[in-house]
Each structure stands twice: as C-alpha cells, then as structure tokens.
C-alpha cells in the first residue's frame, strides 16, 4: 500500500496520470492532510536532490573561483598574523631551493668522484698508412676505427695481424676495440703482454689497461695500474688526472 502511494506521487510529478486519475489524486490530497504533507516532502526532496546532483559540477567550478578570490581578497588583506605566515613560507621556499641546489652540487661532486671511462677514452686515430703497406685491410681498419665502428675495425685488424704478426700498434688497437666491445678479459691479455714488453707502446698499453679496469668500475685496481706509469711517459699527465679523481 505504502509502495503504491509513492509510485503514484512519482507518476503525478512526471505527469503520467490520466485526467481522471489526476483529479482523484488531487481530491485525496485536499482531504488528507497527512498525505498532503508527505507529498509535499516528496516533491521538495525531488527538486532539491535533482538540483543538487545536476549542479554538482558547476558548484565545484564556482567553489574554485571563490577559493581563488577568497585568498586574493581576504588573506592578502594583511593581518600581521597572516603576513608573517606568508613571509615565513616564502623563506621556507627559499630555503628549499637552496637545499636542493646544495643537493644537486653534492650530487655532481659525488658523480665527479666516480670518473667514467668515456671521460678518458679519446683514442688517437689509427694511422697505419705511414708503414707504406698500403693495402685494403689497412684502409678499412683505419676507416672503421676512426668512425668508432669498432667491430669492423677489430675484424680488419685481425686480418692485418696475420700479415704483420710483430706489429705491436696493431695489437694495441685491437685491444682498444675490445674495450669498446666490452671484451674486458681479452683486452687485458693484450695490454698485459704489451706493457710487459719494451716497445714504444709499453705505457700506452698500461694506460689502456687502466682504462679497461675503469670501464669495469674496478677503481682500486685501476689506481694501482696508473701508479706504474712513470713521469717520463707520455701518458703520465693523463694518469695523474685520472688518479686525482679516483
């Protein structure tokens, strides 16, 4: 019975009753105060909720405007209390900026404390032509190496090595290609044998042995190798520089 009453309210408000049903309903409302009260509440709820939910979005937008204007006109309307608040917040922000700059600098210094291989890996270009043996493998090896195409360079240098088995420079450059290709142990073997010898490339090989360790981030071992480079060597300045940063 109760249920039917509300269905009737709903239909009446939706204009879904026939003329006779409508007249009958209105007559009942006028004779039954209790029913009338309930209907009035039902109707008021309907308009109120409809308006509330329909306008939810625009209310939010209005609130945004009001919040903005409120802080502009009210909190700026200087009371000493709010003023100091604003200032201290400003200082706080400044402090934050300073702190983050300090942090950034610290980070950079810290980064500087860990030198990376690429900072020191400026290889001299490969120039084997001076040997006069102007063959195809030499041109290809030079071209590849000088354009940082280390894989191809390594292949060409291996071909050359067969023709010139005692050429230490070719071996050294093979080693450099190996570092670039992250073949650390093979590279190390080459640099070890050259640095133990007495060729003109002795200390260059030692330097590259150190770089090989640097690229693997083996800083302690790298340091030890660098220390074996004497002052007289061409590589000494570079080694000193790198040692400072380790």
């Amino acid at each position: 019975m109760e249920e039917l009453k509300y269905i009737e309210f709903d239909k009446f408000l939706n204009n879904e009753l026939t003329e006779t049903e409508k007249t009958a309903f209105e007559e009942r409302l006028n004779s039954d105060a209790d029913l009338k009260q309930e209907f009035e509440i039902y109707k008021a709820l309907e308009t109120s909720l409809a308006s509330k939910f329909e306008n939810e979005e625009t209310e939010k937008e209005l609130r945004n405007t009001l919040t903005h204007l409120g802080s502009k006109y009210i909190n700026d309307k200087t009371e000493t209390e709010t003023k100091t608040k604003v200032i201290s917040l400003f200082n706080y922000k400044k402090l934050l900026v300073a702190a983050s700059i300090a942090l950034l600098i610290g980070f950079l210094i810290f980064k500087n404390g860990n030198p990376v291989y690429s900072d020191f890996s400026k290889h001299n270009s490969l120039e084997l032509v001076v040997r006069g043996d102007n063959n195809e493998a030499i041109t290809k090896a030079e071209e590849a190496f000088n354009t940082k195409n280390y894989k191809t360079a390594f292949v060409q240098l291996t071909i050359l090595e067969e023709q010139l088995p005692n050429d230490i420079e070719i071996q050294l450059y093979k080693g450099i290609c190996l570092i670039e290709m992250d073949q650390f142990s093979q590279a190390e073997t080459i640099f070890n044998s050259i640095s133990k010898g007495n060729s003109a490339f002795k200390y260059k090989a030692t330097w590259y042995k150190a770089l090989n360790l640097l690229k693997q981030e083996n800083f302690e071992a790298c340091k030890e190798v660098l220390k074996t480079i004497p002052e007289s060597a061409e590589e000494f300045e570079q080694a000193k520089k790198l040692l400072k940063r380790l």
């Binding site: 109120s48 308006s51 209310e59 609130r63 909190n75 009371e79």
Partner: peptide, 28 residues
C-alpha cells in the same frame, strides 16, 4: 569574525559557504 574569536581563514570559509548556499537557492 576576527572580533569574535575567529581568524581570516574562518571568515573566508563563512563567506564561501554563504555564497554557495545563495547560488543553490537561486538555481533551485
């Protein structure tokens, strides 16, 4: 509001809520 135990923030809230109520009344 300040003269009666409140601060600027309270006043801002009071003003905003009052305006939102008027808005709803005008809408509905």
């Amino acid at each position: 509001v300040r003269n009666n135990n409140g601060n600027a923030d309270d006043a801002q809230d009071i003003i905003q809520e009052t305006l939102v109520t008027i808005y709803h009344q005008a809408k509905e």
